[in-house]
């Protein structure tokens, strides 16, 4: 699978990573090489194989639906790059 500049631009946008124009071609080459190498999986016949969903067969653990944590706003905000009171601050979202 060969990846072109437009695809790189689209992936970068989905991944929310700014990619400069001059980086598009090198990235397209790198991603194409890796995806091309991955294509060898097409040789494997997986008809009727169930995809792996967990490494060890075990039942999903359940617990009582009750509050086990909380009242630690200060801890949650302690590492915020920008805050106001008990809020994270982001650029204006609604015009």
């Amino acid at each position: 699978m060969s990846v072109d500049r437009d695809t790189v631009r689209r992936i970068a946008q989905l991944a929310r990573i700014r990619v400069e124009e001059e980086e598009l071609d090198p990235l397209a080459n790198e991603l194409s090489a890796i995806l091309g190498w991955i294509e060898q999986l097409d040789e494997v016949n997986t008809d009727g194989v169930k995809p792996m969903t967990s490494v060890e067969a075990m039942e999903m653990k359940k617990r009582e639906d009750e509050v086990t944590d909380g009242f630690c706003a200060e801890d949650i905000l302690a590492n915020a790059p920008k805050r106001e009171g008990n809020f994270f601050v982001v650029p204006k979202v609604v015009e």
Partner: peptide, 11 residues
């Protein structure tokens, strides 16, 4: 999905 199937075969 293909990779998880191959993974099942490896297992």
């Amino acid at each position: 999905l293909k990779a998880q199937k191959v993974r099942a075969l490896i297992k």
